[in-house]
Design a protein around this nucleic acid. Structure first.
Lengths: 161, 161
DNA sequence: AAAATACGTCAGCATTGTTGACATATATGC
DNA sequence: GCATATATGTCAACAATGCTGACGTATTTT
């Protein structure tokens, strides 16, 4: 009686089921970023610019090192895109009055406008998927994604619950 | 009576809830690819090599154009990584006997070994998240991701159900 | 006063995507 | 059988976005 155990995955999780999950993530992430990517191209911006605009929009007044901790890229990499966004007037900096070494980041009205344009594309895609799936599926979606996210990054979500 | 409607999202989906979904996707995808990325670095390979190895592993004997259709990159981009994988003996080609223009792709034993190494890291992460979440959550996870995936790419999944 | 922190910058390099131009082998349509 | 379409490959240049390493300045902490 062959008990198909191709790889080391207990608890009824077949290899095919796990591969399907991986592919779902791959295609979903790809399609999720496709629309913003094409909008950004019109500004000569890329996905890296989008991330900066998104997170600064989500947490106005964050410092450069806060942003570095979220993005997990080097300051040299960030500097390139952040510099462009500053020079082109999408983001502005303000010295923290508490600690004058820190530069707090804010979207300008122009930056806010682009943020809204980009985020609206993505939120409407998510909203459509949510509406088509129902509340229960939405809860499951979040639960599983949280399970995939490392403990370190988990912390970013616990407070917002 | 202010009925908070910050953006255009009906059906009780708050802006905060939708932004959280976007962030979950961002962090999950990042953490999901982190382990393979660090393994690949040891081979002087990148994420592009991983994708090729993964999809050829999932569908042995696929043609170059099949792969191009999945990855949605140009043949010049693919050629670079595919060429490396061929030269270094991770993948081998075989002329299709039906249509001798087509080159069918297969993993070599060496390629299969790397595929297993990489995929096992990712499947165990998914498996852990699945086990911690329960069957119902897993179903919801797949439902929502499918809702995010474009109709074009959906087709890749319908047959496997 | 010395050390640590926050931020910035210059320089070079790798990966992975792009466009455009061509070339070859094979299959298909008429 | 010839013209055309298809599948694949290749050369060259360029752009976005990561990286490392080396410095420099301002400010805070010890």
């Amino acid at each position: 009686m062959p008990t198909t155990t191709p790889r080391a995955n207990p608890l009824f999780l077949s290899d095919a089921e796990l591969r399907k999950a991986m592919e779902l993530l791959f295609f979903a992430y790809r399609d999720f970023t496709a629309e913003p990517d094409s909008i950004l191209a019109r500004y000569d911006f890329g996905r890296a610019h989008h991330r900066v605009i998104y997170f600064v929009g989500a947490d106005a007044g964050m410092s450069v090192s806060d942003l570095l901790a979220i993005l997990k890229i080097t300051k040299q990499s960030l500097s390139r895109v952040l510099g462009q966004l500053l020079r082109e007037g999408f983001i502005e900096q303000q010295t923290d009055t508490q600690d004058r070494r820190r530069r707090l980041l804010f979207l300008t009205p122009k930056g806010q406008e682009l943020e809204t344009l980009l985020t609206d594309k993505q939120t409407s895609l998510i909203a459509k998927a949510y509406r088509d799936s129902g509340a229960e599926a939405v809860a499951g979606f979040a639960t599983v994604l949280r399970g995939i996210i490392s403990d370190v990054d988990q912390k970013r979500f616990v407070e917002s619950e």
